[in-house]
Design a protein around this nucleic acid. Structure first.
Lengths: 244, 244
DNA sequence: CGGTGTTGTGTCGGTACCGACATAACGTTT
DNA sequence: AAACGTTATGTCGGTACCGACACAACACCG
């Protein structure tokens, strides 16, 4: 993960490790389905009853039941409850509840990827703009990014998992692909893990461009420090945020 | 389960508009910097004093001050306060506070992009795995994605802003690129906005692949329904989540 | 027909949080 | 020297939330 430490922050005092995080939610009808609710549903699925689920989670039954009613009012029926019967009854998740959980998990997974992937952030200035897309002048040259309105001094952040590398020789002409940002550079470092490799590419800007590619791609391209490559990334995947 | 309350919501419950959302946070030393804290800092920057800032936000001064102390204990000094003086003093943000705000905004911006961009999710089954990367068999063929351990039935989600399109003719078959997932397909729809275009590509799977590209790229490629294209996306940008 | 363990519903007390308020310290300006 | 509006600190009362508890309804089973 990037740990900040760019653009001269006078970090004289304590250098507290600040970690990005998030909380994923699903909204419907004014109530928000959060991580606790997901845990409740999963516990119900495991335990087979709301009572046991609340117990497992260390929460009170009455609260759990109240919360569940609230959720069902907003998201539709989530559990099929049965009282009486052998063992007194029980509750099982409905298909809708499972879909909700899956949706929640997909969102969480996607956000996790963004929050913890490495990224390179370049200071720059907006020199042109059409609609949401701005052309930004940076140390590495001009690039295009999604930008909020009314800002000229920006940071451009390029997530490492959106950068694709190509051999500088066999690179196809720019016109035939939809990746509008292309930069020639040389590989500075290449750390190959078991299945994933992190590559930094010198493209002229102060922080080198960092790319996250599969180890297999790294092998196929024969990446080595000093090698000439073309790094490209889509403008719809790179974002500018106001600097001031 | 009862759902029996009338008002014909048996179908309305199905179409419950559930909206993904999130809350961005920065953690340090056990305290979490959230949206409220960001608003507080921004209000201080605007008003020039903690007192006026708390007033503007409709919050109590004592609470705001207490919270600020807490934050400074974890993140370092955030405001330069001066009591006495013309007007009684005031508070201004330190460079560290501005850096923190910028970091927060970058994270928020990145997460926003993920949360609200279109995506295509395909059911599939893991058929192979090396480390974090799994090969998944889907309706469109085999693709590679990051996957959590121990799951075979998965959903693969491909975010629209990570899909790049190429002309099917000019695309070198096995070009030396690090985008490992490549699918030939035909354009089904192409909606061109002012600066961004949303394209759906039929690649054999039930939900068509949706790609978000710049309007300029759409023009350059001459995208039209029925056109043959190659859609490619990096495996480090696509994620699999457990389906069961 | 009673036993069983659950769902469904309500009430009560404790706790954590928050806003309101009071007060001291402070230093520049008048 | 007095005035001013801020920072800095503490206390108090209200409120919202939560866990604990009580109790009725239920339906299957021995």
């Amino acid at each position: 993960m990037d740990d900040g430490s760019k653009s001269g922050d006078a970090g004289a005092a304590d250098s507290a490790p600040v970690a990005p995080a998030f909380e994923t939610e699903l909204h419907a009808e004014g109530v928000t389905f959060g991580a606790e609710d997901a845990a409740l549903l999963r516990a119900i699925d495991d335990a087979g009853s709301l009572n046991a689920a609340a117990d497992d989670l260390g929460r009170s039954y009455s609260r759990a039941h109240k919360r569940l009613s609230q959720l069902e009012g907003a998201f539709g029926s989530l559990v099929a409850s049965q009282r009486g019967g052998t063992g007194g009854g029980g509750s099982t998740l409905t298909e809708r509840a499972r879909a909700l959980l899956a949706r929640f998990e997909r969102l969480r997974s996607g956000l996790t990827g963004v929050a913890e992937v490495a990224e390179t952030v370049l200071p720059g200035e907006v020199v042109d703009r059409t609609g949401e897309i701005a052309t930004v002048e940076t140390g590495a040259g001009r690039l295009r990014a999604l930008a909020p309105p009314d800002c000229t001094a920006v940071f451009v952040t390029i997530r490492a998992d959106t950068v694709t590398l190509q051999d500088a020789d066999g690179a196809p002409p720019a016109a035939e692909t939809s990746a509008r940002n292309r930069f020639r550079g040389t590989v500075r470092t290449a750390e190959r893990g078991e299945s994933v490799a992190t590559v930094t590419v010198d493209v002229g800007a102060d922080p080198p461009l960092v790319a996250l590619i599969t180890a297999r791609s790294s092998d196929l391209l024969g990446l080595e420090p000093g090698m000439a490559v073309v790094a490209s990334f889509k403008t719809t995947a790179t974002r500018a945020t106001p600097r001031a």
